[in-house]
Simulated scan of single mutants.
Amino acid sequence: MSDSQRVAVVTGGSRGIGRQVALRLAADGLAVAVGYAGNQAAAEETVAAITAAGGRALAVRADVADEPAVAALFDAAEASFGGVDVVVHAAGVMTLAPVAEFDLDAFDRMHRTNVRGTFVVAQQAARRLRPGGAIVTFSTSVVGLALPGYAAYAATKGAVEALTLILARELRGRDVTVNAVAPGPTATDLFLDGKDEQTVARLAAQPPLQRLGTPQDIAEVVAFLAGPGRWVNGQVLRANGGIV
């Protein structure tokens, strides 16, 4: 590892979009600390795939809403690789139901992971990133689409967007970019869970490209923001195939 190698922390890196982001950043030459909530085997599979391709990675368990755990994740990245340059917060949960029927305990759990978790990770990133760094959070295109049943989830992601845009301005002078990626319908376990084939087909038909997004599609957007996209800052990129 050269002294100039960049280092990424990717939460939610054990599966779905987070896993593809970790693999994509590693392919770009970054060392990667893969944060995961509970599925150690899946996280180790991500690490193994990176190391098999000649990269460097480690897996660290961390509840993103737990400040000491997230601090320990960053500590591990710094101890193993020398610092942190890129933080991608891909961890999140989604529960769907109409407002009138939504279980408030489920709302609180989702708020804890999606809002508090984003805040805790962003706080550590703001304190630790080296100049030239990038922070990428995750929203959802549903914030703009206003689909019924998504109110609670979209509300948490609306909070993420506000946090992201303000943090970009708070880091003036640090040479650190802060952006959010807002995927549309993307073929992940989180998205597909609980949806029948007709619902999936209807959602896949929405974009002019007439398909669901893939985790690889989203990882390419993240890699751009983490690497060459230095002039993109304080933005929400709606990576959704053209849904309006």
Rank of each mutant, 00 (worst) to 15 (best):
G92S: 06
A223C: 00
R6Q: 13
A168K: 05
Y153C: 06
V136S: 02
G229P: 00
R109F: 01
A53F: 14
R230W: 06
A204F: 02
E170M: 10
G184W: 03
A126N: 03
G242S: 02
L209Y: 13
A106L: 15
R56N: 14
E45Y: 07
F107P: 12
G194M: 11
D108E: 15
Q198M: 12
E67P: 08
M94A: 14
A69H: 07
L96V: 14
A37W: 03
V47Q: 00
E101H: 15
Q40W: 11
I218H: 02
L190H: 09
Y153S: 04
D75S: 05
F102K: 10
P228G: 10
G18V: 05
R128C: 01
V10L: 04
L73S: 00
L96N: 07
A71L: 09
G16T: 03
L237G: 13
V244C: 13
P185F: 04
R112I: 08
V178N: 02
M94Y: 07
V120H: 11
G54M: 04
Q20A: 13
F119P: 01
M110D: 05
V7E: 02
L73K: 01
A106D: 15
P183Y: 05
V142G: 02
V70A: 00
E44K: 10
R128N: 01
V10R: 00
R172C: 09
A100S: 14
A239Y: 10
S139W: 11
D85M: 00
K157Y: 13
D28G: 15
E161T: 08
T140P: 07
L225S: 08
A223G: 07
G241R: 11
D217C: 05
T199A: 14
T46N: 10
V176R: 02
G55V: 08
D66Y: 05
A49S: 15
T140V: 05
A159D: 08
Q40G: 10
T214G: 08
R109K: 14
A97L: 08
G241A: 03
E78Q: 14
E44I: 04
A33F: 06
F191K: 02
A154F: 12
P215Q: 00
D103F: 08
Q40H: 11
L73W: 00
I50G: 11
V47A: 13
A91S: 01
